[in-house]
Amino acid sequence: MNKRGWVLFALMSVIWGIPYLMIKVVVDGGVSVPVLVFARTAVGAVVLLPLALRGGRLRGLHRYWKPLVGFAALEIVVPWWLLSDAELVLTSSMTGLLIAASPIISLLVARLIGSGERIGAGRWAGLAVGIAGVAVLAAPELRGGSPWAVAEVLLAAVCYAIAPIIAARGLADVPALPVTAVCLGLAALVYTPPAVLTWPDAMPDGQVLAALAGLALVCTALGFLVFFALIREVGTSRALVFTYVNPAVAVAAGVALLGEPLTWPIVVSFGLILVGSVLATAGRSGDAPPSGKPAAVPSAQV
């Protein structure tokens, strides 16, 4: 990977490692989940749609409306609600670690639907190690009265596992930028009524507004643009390696900036989930050739 690729990789590791921190600041600041998700999706759509309109990239996209709706629902509409609602209870670092199990869940989902992908002994070992890491992390919360919040994060991970399958089967011929722009626009429309109904009576404080702006402009709009640039530079498979770094960023940000505890279960579970994800996803198909049109729209997992 060249210097530009490493820079983009580092940016992505941070940009999509800090949303959990910002979500925690926003929901703890009294902003409702619908308003939070509406702000993210609406601003992201406003930034990306004009770029997608260049050169007629949206032309003919209506023919793909069914997979577009399905992908938007499972990549943005449902998981962004679940993650934000879960952080009303969970710490940002725990949420970031739990969602890191997405590659493991993706492999299980692919196996269940009969994707034809062979799972050898090493990958089965990775699944077992990763699941053990999730168990170590979730056990205290399950005993402490937060089982639904843990379930919400794991359900979001399931959504992130299914969404790329929809993209691969129904959107493989469509460039990623217009797909993302349209999906963000659809999600913003879905969240408009509940956001209006739960709009805050008073202006949130500056810290909350800054976190909300960071989520919308940096983690969503800029994040997708950098992600597409990274895919063009190094290919889809290599681009997705940054998802192994995101949990470390999420934990570091939560501990350093929010004073969240760094416990032994968190450290152990991080190691188990990371090792399990690497083993479980080893040996998959190689990189797609760097281009502006990857074979499928990858999952953002933020």
Rank of each mutant, 00 (worst) to 15 (best):
V109K: 01
V251P: 07
G283N: 06
G170W: 10
E152K: 14
N246M: 10
A73E: 02
R284H: 00
S84V: 02
V158N: 09
G133W: 05
I105P: 02
V150K: 15
V27K: 12
F228T: 00
V179E: 06
G144V: 09
P34I: 12
A149F: 08
L127Y: 01
M203S: 07
G214Y: 06
V129R: 05
L74T: 03
A72T: 05
T91Q: 13
L51N: 00
A167V: 05
I231M: 14
A39F: 04
L11K: 08
T95R: 06
R118Q: 00
L90N: 03
W6H: 13
G170E: 08
C219I: 11
Y191I: 02
L61H: 11
E87T: 12
L212S: 07
V179K: 12
T263N: 06
V234C: 08
G133A: 08
I165M: 13
L225N: 02
L88D: 02
Y20Q: 10
G145Q: 12
E117P: 00
S93P: 08
V7N: 10
L262A: 00
G116Q: 00
Q207R: 15
G55S: 13
P193R: 11
G29Q: 15
L58K: 14
E87R: 13
L186W: 09
G292D: 14
L171S: 11
L230R: 07
T281D: 04
L8D: 06
E75Y: 01
L48V: 04
L197K: 10
L53N: 01
F242V: 09
V196H: 02
I119W: 00
S299A: 15
T41V: 07
A128M: 12
A125G: 07
S299Y: 07
A101T: 07
L155S: 15
Q207I: 10
M22A: 14
G170T: 12
L36C: 06
I105E: 01
K24A: 08
S146H: 14
L97Y: 06
A213Q: 13
A139Q: 11
L98W: 04
G145K: 14
L230V: 06
L274D: 04
L11T: 00
C159G: 05
Y20L: 11
S32G: 02
A138Q: 10
L88S: 08
T95I: 02
A172C: 04
G55N: 06
G96T: 02
A282V: 09
L108V: 15
L83F: 13
V35F: 00
V275F: 05
V7C: 09
P79R: 02
R59H: 14
C219W: 05
W6V: 11
A282K: 13
G122V: 09
G126R: 07
I18E: 00
G29F: 14
A161C: 14
G114A: 04
W264F: 06
V89D: 10
G120H: 05
I18G: 09
R54W: 12
V109H: 04
H62K: 15
V234F: 04
V249K: 07
G170V: 11
A239M: 09
A100S: 08
L53S: 12
G60V: 11
L137D: 03
S277V: 01
L209A: 06
S237Q: 13
S32T: 03
K66C: 03
V31P: 10
F228D: 04
L21Y: 10
V129H: 01
L36D: 01
L217S: 01
L177E: 06
